[in-house]
Design a protein around this nucleic acid. Structure first.
Length: 464
RNA sequence: GGUCCCUUCGUCUAUCGGUUAGGACACAUGGUUUUCAUCCAUGAAAGAGGGGUUCGAUUCCCCUAGGGACCGCCA
């Protein structure tokens, strides 16, 4: 039994979306689980639409997810000559033929089929016509001689046995009239040359598989195993496409979703292992299998992603979390000033407990990040005369305490509540607003302690 | 229209013929709490419909309905 080899084969015609990421993840996980290799193939043969920037984006996305491919990336456009050679070989061995139908002729047939509401299948016109009858003014395409009779069975590792009538597969084109190979030919040849043992891909490729298997058979090549995983649907139940919102990795990373959260989410979307919900990387690799993949498509659920992210934020060590936050702020927000670094780092213990995303942490640390407190008019109104008195008293009291710690702060605040015969809110809220410019945020003691005595006194001095 | 696939709480799913149909997210209620959260407890919530097979079907088979994918000289 040869070593398992899987691949992810995106075309760089747009940003990699989350469905593609999941396909890559499943391929990667499966190969790692089987102690095999995982490869990346860039299918860039559509010259019009393929862009270098998309290729880079794809590689970056995979890297962000922690998915590393083995070996060099395989660039399909560099292998076109080989594909053409195989097409010619298929022609020579009688498995393919030249078709001299003009584009117009085909279009006409398609139109007629549509009018009659019957499915269009190429009529195999040139399958048996001798080549000397070929028109001189038309460049031919090469079509594969598909099986006409009988049925074909696909033993899919996820979908089970899928059987179709061979005559529903037309004599598909393998070489265009400009002598460039088409997808099914290129994919088959590359998968063979790359020695892929398992093709794990989206369900939308299932019908192609029947074409590709015929190519393998015609060439006498061994056929890899196939696993067609169900697609991810949008909230309204359609196939996820590049045009959908919130479907690229960047959409998630920019709001501060951690790659491990997304990895865990994507893993559990369409795959399960008993009742287990949280899988760290090692567990993912150890436990992943094809049997656990369901057959029905699933919808994206943002609240689940957020919830998983919250879990991972809470369970990430502060030093590591800080690194992630720092990097996140640099890319999507603003660079954390050097003199603030330690304060932020030390505040992570409480900041991370009220955040679902890195963006939440960033927002909740704005009172540290910004030297100036910005108030909204509405909040300002809450600082009435009584509140001002309290702020003033509080400021006086902390100015003279020797030890600036939680214990003493509690004493002061409780003392204020008692002497003013009021509740916590009327003391805590004005202080919070003065210190952070917001009614919400971390606990008041956390705020005060993280800011430090001098800064607190300074900010409380802003009172009008 | 043709071919193929799918169908358990709102969502992701467990169940591999016998369960009070379980878990997670979301939701609701209550508690803890020094705001907002967190956290804890509790609750509501599902086998698309109809036939079979069987002592017994969510589970196996068929039909219907609904949904999806594919049907390019794109990949």
């Amino acid at each position: 039994m040869s070593k398992v080899a899987t691949r992810f084969a995106p075309s760089p015609t747009g940003a990699l979306h989350i469905g593609g990421v999941r396909t890559a993840l499943f391929n990667w996980l499966y190969s790692k689980n089987q102690n095999g290799t995982f490869h990346l193939r860039i299918e860039d043969t559509d010259k019009e639409r393929s862009k270098e920037e998309h290729k880079i984006q794809i590689i970056n996305s995979l890297e962000w997810m922690g998915i590393k491919h083995d070996g060099e990336e395989y660039i399909q456009s560099k292998k076109i000559d080989e594909h053409v050679k195989i097409a010619k070989k298929l022609l020579e061995t009688g498995h393919a033929y030249k078709c001299y139908c003009s584009t117009e002729e085909i279009e006409e047939q398609k139109k007629r089929a549509k009018q009659k509401k019957i499915p269009y299948v190429y009529n195999r016109k040139w399958r048996d016509i001798s080549e000397d009858q070929a028109p001189k003014d038309i460049k031919p395409v090469i079509r594969f001689k598909s099986k006409i009779k009988g049925t074909s069975l696909l033993k899919d590792l996820v979908q089970g046995n899928v059987e179709i009538e061979n005559n529903t597969i037309e004599d598909f084109i393998i070489l265009r009239k400009d002598e460039t190979p088409t997808y099914n030919l290129s994919a088959s040849v590359d998968d063979h040359n790359m020695e892929m043992t398992h093709i794990i891909r989206g369900d939308d490729h299932k019908i192609n598989t029947f074409k590709q298997i015929q190519i393998y058979e015609a060439l006498g090549w061994s056929i890899p195993q196939f696993a067609h995983i169900p697609l991810i649907h949008t909230i309204d139940g359609k196939k996820l496409s590049k045009r959908d919102n919130a479907s690229t990795l960047e959409d998630y990373s920019k709001i501060g979703i951690l790659p491990e959260s997304l990895r865990n989410y994507l893993l559990r979307l369409g795959w399960s292992y008993k009742d287990k919900e949280i899988f760290n990387l090692d567990e993912s690799i150890k436990l992943f299998n094809l049997e656990g993949i369901g057959k029905s498509p699933s919808k994206l659920d943002m609240s689940r992603i957020l919830s998983l992210n919250e879990y991972y934020i809470k369970n990430t060590d502060e030093n590591i979390l800080y690194k992630k936050l720092k990097q996140y702020c640099e890319i999507y927000k603003e660079k954390i000033k050097e003199e603030k670094e330690n304060t932020i780092k030390n505040s992570l213990t409480f900041l991370k407990n009220k955040a679902k995303t890195l963006e939440d942490i960033f927002n909740n640390s704005k009172y540290i990040l910004n030297d100036e407190v910005i108030f909204s008019e509405k909040d300002k109104e809450l600082i009435n005369d009584e509140a001002k008195k309290i702020i003033y008293l509080f400021k006086e009291k902390i100015s003279i305490i020797k030890v600036f710690d939680r214990n003493n702060l509690e004493k002061i605040i409780n003392g204020l509540i008692e002497s003013k015969n009021t509740n916590f809110k009327s003391v805590g809220q004005p202080l919070r607003i003065m210190l952070t410019g917001s009614k919400f945020g971390p606990g008041i003691y956390d705020i005060i302690l993280s800011l430090g005595k001098n800064e607190v006194i300074k900010r409380l001095g802003n009172i009008g």
